[in-house]
Nucleic acid binder design. Structure first.
Ligand SMILES: [Zn+2]
Ligand SMILES: [Zn+2]
Ligand SMILES: [Zn+2]
Ligand SMILES: [Zn+2]
Lengths: 348, 348
DNA sequence: TGTGGTCAAGGCTAAC
DNA sequence: GTTAGCCTTGACCACA
């Protein structure tokens, strides 16, 4: 069963609960709109515009610049919960940089991933892309690993070059693509051996927490050195990784805080990993360390996604192509914002 | 004796050595053609088109715009010979602005003064004016101080409004006007008391070096405040200035570098100035400081023509009418390019 | 096509 | 050395 046109959609990597009745009633806007454009999102001081992708003041802008370009490493002498305000912001450099990164500051100044899609009845004229929508959708296509020509066939209305499409059409396409990606993942989840033994809200929560890792894994599967740079090599010779391990991600690496029945989840997880190990041993009898290697690889991916905000801003992004930078950006933002994105789709 | 139709002509304020057989065999073209249209003439960066009259990059365009519109005054902390390249252009604002001005940038975006006229057998279709040819010729008429109606009478083929003429006719007229101006100046020179004592090539060289000052003086003589603005006043009560002093210009103010017999020229110069002083004293016995005042006035004119590039772009041009801006522009370009323009005419 | 305007990035420097 | 206010730069954009 395909998602109906009234099913929830993913847009800008944030799921909203409203049906897509009419794309024109949806508005893409900066998440910066969540607060006053005149107030620094880091310290609350008077902002002087967008700096490194985030509404911020001169002080935080300069601080981030110095920290990133000089590759400074700070330490917090307290509990890493220092408050940021105009008067207190200089008391802890560590917490200030962390807040900058959490707010989404990045050396490329990308704000595109801060888009949300929300129900909005405002003037339809105000649909506005500050980033080239073609670039936006191309990044999305890369991350979702969806073949463009296939998409074109599916959406007959898009049988024209991207650059020839109106922003509103691109917006509609983007929503459908996101919907498509989510739908495919849910279908996959429903075929998992332990699906029936889990509470839907549990799996929903786990998926939300690890979706960014799935995205990273999908991307790594492409093994395109042109896109991934040095990271391309880390999944060499483990082509079955996605098919076999991606469903175990939520149970393997995500902490189980917030679940009412942690013991039950832990049990499922152990059981599932055992099955995986048995499968590996039977399929590759000549490779006794294969399962351990796969686990190490998954750990690495997990660490990459955890550290993506650091990677993005220090060193790595400079050596790697733009697409990987975009990928890391997405990982960062899905990790930050997609804590529990899915509710309806699992019931379909 | 009038210049024959096969005599050398002046066109675009640059004298060329070919007879005007057929105006269609002559081609007006940008001096920008001397180099690649894709390379900034100031810094060598990638050019994005014509800006303020000159092939330049976005950076130099913006820099010139800010410098001019904000009336910025810069200083060079080195020897005013800073090199301009993509990487070094920001090291010295003074030298960058000077280069912009030297290359001919101007706030009106006139490229007209960069036209050369050269013998060319190319496609006659390629005659191209980027500046309104009527404006072009009107500027020229102003500078040469030639009465338009008189010109019309002389050239019967031009007995129609300028705007109704074809570009090729305007071009022909322009050539004839330039020819006329040069011819008149040569006639004047031949009547000078020391003409016979000078080598022709010497005087030719001196005239070439100071012709732009003569043009300025001629213009100032019109004393038309509508045209000259504030500068109108500086030649008040010195109406005999041109008749008396203009032939001394080359000897008074032009440096004598490059002449084989400098001592001879210096001697002539002194002698001539003595005669001038005596003449002034005899004609205006009640004004003992008149000669010194005249010298000061000439110095001022000299300075104006020297500083015309600054005047053109700062303050002055804003307060003065368009024609004076054009005049200053011509002075700048004749000063830069007409170092030795005349060869044949003196022999006529 | 060239223009003027915009605004984030980066440089500068006085004040800590 | 660090901070942050201020300035300059230049890529980009709407407009004519
Ligand atoms: Zn701040
Ligand atoms: Zn802290
Ligand atoms: Zn340049
Ligand atoms: Zn300099």
């Amino acid at each position: 069963p395909r998602a109906s046109p009234h099913s929830p959609i993913v847009s800008g990597f944030k799921i909203i609960a409203y049906p897509l009745k009419n794309v024109f009633t949806y508005l893409f806007y900066f998440s910066d709109d969540r607060s006053d454009r005149r107030v620094c999102l880091i310290c609350g001081d008077r902002a002087t515009g967008l700096h490194y992708g985030i509404t911020s003041c001169e002080g935080c802008k300069g601080f981030f610049k110095r920290s990133i370009f000089n590759k400074r490493v700070y330490k917090c002498i307290r509990d890493k919960k220092c408050t940021m305000s105009r008067k207190q912001r200089n008391r802890c450099q560590y917490c200030r940089l962390v807040k900058c990164l959490q707010m989404g500051m990045n050396r490329k100044g990308w704000s595109v991933f801060l888009y949300h899609c929300t129900h909005c009845t405002h003037n339809t004229q105000s649909i506005h892309f500050t980033v080239d929508p073609v670039q936006h959708i191309e990044m999305f296509l890369f991350v979702t690993s969806v073949d463009w020509s296939m998409i074109l066939l599916r959406f007959s209305s898009c049988s024209q070059p991207l650059c020839a499409m109106t922003p509103s059409k691109l917006l509609a396409l983007l929503c459908q693509l996101a919907d498509e990606l989510l739908f495919q993942q849910i279908m996959w989840i429903k075929q998992l051996p332990f699906f029936k033994e889990m509470l839907i809200r549990h799996y929903t929560c786990l998926l939300g927490a690890s979706w960014h890792e799935l995205v990273l894994l999908q991307a790594l599967m492409s093994r395109d050195c042109q896109v991934l740079g040095d990271l391309c090599g880390i999944i060499e010779n483990v082509t079955e990784l996605q098919l076999f391990f991606s469903p175990s991600f939520p149970m393997s690496f995500t902490d189980t805080k917030g679940f009412s029945n942690v013991a039950h989840l832990e049990q499922l997880k152990k059981c599932y990993l055992n099955v995986c190990q048995e499968y590996t041993a039977s399929q590759y009898p000549g490779q006794p360390t294969r399962f351990v290697d796969l686990m190490a690889c998954l750990t690495m991916i997990h660490n990459i996604s955890e550290l993506s905000n650091i990677c993005l801003n220090f060193g790595l992004a400079k050596k790697t192509p733009i697409c990987f930078g975009a990928l890391l950006c997405i990982i960062l933002w899905t990790a930050n914002q997609l804590r529990c994105p899915v509710t309806e789709p699992l019931c379909r």
